[in-house]
Design a protein around this nucleic acid. Structure first.
Lengths: 344, 344
DNA sequence: CTGAAAGCGCTTACAG
DNA sequence: CTGAAAGCGCTTACAG
């Protein structure tokens, strides 16, 4: 067993099983068995060898590495939100423009993550675009070891310096939405946030708070409800807000989907949007221009975010590339769901 | 030089360069040179050997062929319709359950088709799921030559016997929607179809006609408008229908998206849905339960259709497998957008 | 469970 | 331009 070699083979020569064997202190036969998943290897030896293989990024000859893969992996939690769909659309278009294909993986459970990891190990990938998703420290390490470029879109937590990311100016968006409502004359403005642990939820909420405070209005915690970015969640929380003794005259929904839920809640309570209740969303999904009434919302440039993510990915192919943090601008789109508050 | 071997190696053993060399009457060294594009081979020899290589489908060891590819190709026109999104969702889930990844390709132009074809040739694919899409005869032939399993979802034209397909009972769905409206008391029922050239559009239209005729109502061509399955198209055609001297009291929209357009048109004309105008859609997209009012629609089991497509694909791996045609049942979902016609 | 040794498929430096 | 021969990287049947 000698010193571990640097991870990248300096000469560009591929590492061989002979070299792996030498460094692991076993025979080439044993390494070969581990590689082919034979059962006649002791767990300890297997673990040791597998570790060496991963560390060195060993690949069988002929198996093309990540560098010449024509596939970009887009990984998300669930494709059930139009938000994810927009990112996938944008990534597909951008990838195709560069002669690449997007491979889709939905990772709702931890078990699926392992499978996916084995997967990209066996078929190779040019890089990974992660939507919101969190990886374990170990998986992160494995990605770094493999020199896989990775970009996180709308990171759910503050990403480490080793990760590139693309987001949107959520705070400014929240501020703009709130300012708009205040300028219309609203004083009691409710907010339905997304999951509290998500960075974008908190940024939008803080933008909302900043908007109120700038206008000299106090933040009433009773008016801030936390939800899950889904229609039904928005509906439920809106019901709570609207049944308050002193209900809000406007609701800023954390995303367009929850805004739809607010519409429904308003309808059930007999309130008319926007005459009795103003509603602002966040995202500007394709459908939001077509709701009844058309939704006033903060546009998040999802397609451009996806395009940017692909671009950063392809520019980060060099393992020594510096990583990048980008936030694209949001923009308030005023449509029909906001108006001056009802004369009380 | 002996008889050419069958294209598929009968024993499952891969063909070696030694075998290619034997059949070409050259040495293995020469075959290797051809494979690696070395220049020191005479053009005649090169042509002969290359021919042999192609005929036998030779691949270097380690390079995985289509058969062991872990990727399923899903090909569509544009991912801009929620319909396509649902199919992609379903296919992704089903593929993952079988340890496969879905690769996405949007093919709006003929040029992109060529690129995609080169693509799947170089990286291999387990099979192709085509949404609506038409291929040229040449591309079809290439797919057959490569023994690539292919399934068409919602075929746009009557597919040939060599193609497997998954659809839905569009005709029955159209009939059910129309019957529902007639039973509510409607007599003037408009229809906004999708593109006329699409099989599913025509089937839904014919179901509508059958519904009217069964009830002893005549089909008024003035009430049938053709559109593009998009919100804006539905909006435009609804405007036309509603400004007729004798406007319909109900509109059957060819899909949920156009139904949304009808909602908007109704609102602009000052009609209330469902009191003044009943609206039925087709698809039952996730959002359709959340429109205001909630949409009465014909559910097309998109997720199941996708799952079925993946299943057929994997079962058709054997090139001699018989091809399958499946139509899954549709179901009328009554919600809030339909009611008895207004008392004229 | 391990590895020495035989062997397989491919590549390449070199002689002709 | 061709191929015999050496050699490389990997796998596997088998002895221990």
């Amino acid at each position: 067993m000698s010193d571990p070699k640097p991870i990248r083979q300096p000469s560009g020569k591929r590492i061989t099983i002979a070299e792996i064997a030498r460094q692991s202190g076993v025979s080439t036969a044993t390494v070969s068995k581990v590689l082919n998943g034979r059962s006649d290897v002791s767990p300890a030896t297997r673990a040791l060898v597998r570790d060496m293989i991963v560390t060195h990024g060993y690949r069988k000859p002929g198996v093309s590495g990540d560098g010449d893969s024509r596939v970009i992996d887009v990984v998300f939690n669930e494709l059930d939100s139009p938000w994810a769909v927009e990112i996938v659309r944008g990534a597909t278009a951008a990838a195709q423009a560069s002669g690449l294909t997007v491979a889709l993986t939905a990772l709702s459970e931890a078990g699926e993550r392992r499978v996916w990891f084995d997967h990209i190990t066996s078929r190779g990938t040019r890089g990974i675009i992660l939507l919101l998703y969190e990886l374990t420290a170990k998986q992160r390490a494995e990605i770094v070891a493999r020199h896989l470029p990775m970009v996180v879109v709308d990171p759910s937590t503050e990403p480490g310096p080793e990760v590139s990311s693309v987001g949107a100016t959520n705070w400014s968006g929240g501020l703009a939405a709130t300012k708009h409502l205040i300028e219309l004359g609203h004083r009691r403005i409710g907010m339905i946030t997304g999951p509290r642990e998500l960075l974008c939820s908190r940024a939008r909420l803080d933008g909302y708070r900043a908007g109120l405070e700038t206008a000299g209005l106090s933040v009433d915690d009773e008016l801030v409800r936390s939800s899950d970015f889904r229609v039904h969640g928005g509906y439920e929380q809106a019901k709570v807000l609207l049944s308050l003794p002193d209900p809000p005259t406007a609701i800023f929904a954390g995303n367009d989907l929850s805004a739809l839920g607010v519409f429904r809640a308003a309808r059930e309570v007999g309130l008319h949007v926007p005459d009795d209740l103003s509603v602002v969303g966040f995202h500007d999904l394709p459908l939001s221009a077509w709701t009844t009434p058309a939704l006033t919302t903060v546009r998040q440039p999802l397609l451009q975010m996806a395009r940017m993510a692909v671009r950063i990915l392809l520019e980060n192919q060099d393992p020594d590339a510096f990583h990048r943090r980008v936030e694209l601008a949001t923009e308030l789109i005023v449509r029909e769901s906001t108006a001056i508050p009802p004369a009380s």
